[in-house]
């Protein structure tokens, strides 16, 4: 095709950008993903893990999977988490700052010698009990205090969906099955929560002292684009460094779950390199394990 070199008229760029924003607001990913409530995300994540566990052979329950736990003990850990969540929902303060791993370790280790089917059934029953308890509280904005987190019920259920998806893939890895991406509506909730929690993660990672502007693009179904100012309010007195990070949404969630390194996740980084490292370290520090 013949191409003539003519410059773009001066105001056309701004005009096209304005018309585009008018037609489709920036930030929201395509294709549009149907929104689901957090309890539904938790249920779907539980269903996926339940399906996986139901198909395991007896020997696969003994496979080492995470820390010193085998698959059955990891399922026991999840029973312990559900029990702590239920205590927190009941207002018990003892679980507010309990360690996520230490608090559930007795339940994990108690699975030794128990038939896997019993463990699986007990975990599933615990999930159903949690769902029953939250059924009428999903709009409740009061924070639930558990394992160092202070979150309303909705976000707490997304955290739980995040954990179940992470452990589902831990089990998949242990038994030689391919990794599974979250369903787009679940992923959408997970990415939104992870982005929201980034400042907290950066503080946990000791990276919370600098102020920076982040343009974060998470690609794939359930992704989106966010512009955030991270760090202390008031800025640094000088110019605020900006960083652009582009990552695949599912991979970013694996980073947040501490199951992937930034090198495996990031598709593109531009801007201040130190700021990018701080953000990615903060993302990886969000994992509860």
């Amino acid at each position: 095709m013949t191409e003539f070199r003519v410059p773009l008229p001066a105001d056309l760029r701004a005009r096209v950008l304005a018309a585009s924003a008018d037609a489709r607001p920036p930030g929201r990913g395509l294709p549009e993903v149907p929104a689901i409530p957090p309890a539904e995300a938790f249920r779907r994540a539980a269903d996926a893990l339940a399906d996986l566990l139901a198909g395991l052979q007896p020997g696969q329950w003994r496979r080492p999977v995470l820390r010193d736990l085998d698959v059955q003990e990891l399922t026991g850990h999840l029973i312990g988490v559900e029990r702590d969540i239920q205590r927190a929902l009941a207002g018990e303060v003892g679980v507010a700052d309990a360690d996520h791993v230490a608090s559930t370790q007795p339940t994990a280790l108690a699975q030794a010698g128990v038939p896997p089917e019993v463990t699986r059934t007990a975990w599933r029953a615990a999930v159903e009990e949690t769902l029953e308890l939250v059924a009428h509280r999903v709009q409740d904005r009061a924070p639930v205090a558990v394992h160092g987190m202070r979150l309303p019920v909705g976000p707490l259920l997304v955290v739980r969906a995040f954990e179940l998806w992470t452990h589902e893939n831990d089990v998949r890895r242990a038994v030689g099955l391919p990794q599974r991406a979250p369903e787009p509506p679940v992923l959408q909730l997970m990415t939104a929560l992870a982005v929201q929690a980034l400042p907290h993660g950066m503080q946990r990672a000791g990276q919370g002292s600098a102020t920076l502007d982040l343009h974060l693009v998470l690609t794939g179904a359930g992704g989106g684009t966010w512009d955030l100012r991270l760090g202390p309010d008031g800025g640094t007195g000088g110019s605020i460094p900006e960083v652009v990070i582009v990552a695949e949404g599912g991979a970013f969630c694996r980073l947040v779950a501490n199951r992937a390194s930034p090198r495996d996740v990031v598709l593109q980084v531009s801007g201040a390199a130190s700021a990018a490292s701080a953000v990615l370290a903060g993302a990886a520090a969000l994992a509860l394990d």
């Binding site: 489709r24 990913g29 395509l30 794939g220 684009t225 582009v246």
Partner: peptide, 10 residues
């Protein structure tokens, strides 16, 4: 992919 993610900078 960035356009699909709603990245107006793309």
């Amino acid at each position: 992919a960035r356009l699909e993610a709603g990245d107006d900078r793309a």
